[in-house]
């Protein structure tokens, strides 16, 4: 599995990509693989406040539900519409088209940079 170098990663298997004040959040390739066939993605409405470390949505397979945790605090700008019609995209392209939400961040960017790098994350999932 390859993990984009420009992303940062959490222990809960989310990735975050920072672009100025905006962050894009998704789940990792490792996470989608562990979940199996994803059948439904529950995401917040634009305008919702999310808090770092708190759950903001969930991903469902046929027989399991997993919460997704916000890697940063901020306000949701956009939820990925693609996933409401085609949840299977999250299995196919978790690091790309199947991002989950875009956030206008309230966290200190330094906090985000303190998250795991691609290399660290790869070691982390290797060890898990």
């Amino acid at each position: 599995m390859s993990y984009p170098e420009t992303y940062r990663y959490t222990k809960e298997h989310e990735w975050v990509h920072l672009d100025g004040n905006h962050a894009t959040v998704g789940i990792t390739e490792h996470a989608q693989h562990e979940l199996g066939d994803i059948v439904f993605v529950d995401l917040p409405q634009p305008g919702t406040q999310v808090t770092k470390g708190h759950t903001f949505g969930s991903v469902e397979s046929v027989k399991a539900v997993s919460d997704i945790y916000a890697p940063v605090s901020g306000q949701v700008l956009e939820s990925n519409e693609l996933l409401s019609k085609s949840p299977e995209k999250l299995n196919e392209d978790p690091h790309g088209d199947a991002w989950l939400i875009k956030i206008s961040i309230a966290s200190d960017p330094a906090e985000i940079n303190a998250l795991m790098s691609a290399g660290d994350y790869q070691k982390y999932v290797g060890a898990e």
Partner: peptide, 12 residues
């Protein structure tokens, strides 16, 4: 859609 149900989602 069993994920709505108690045997999977328990208290949620």
């Amino acid at each position: 859609l069993a994920t709505r149900e108690q045997h999977i989602r328990r208290e949620k």
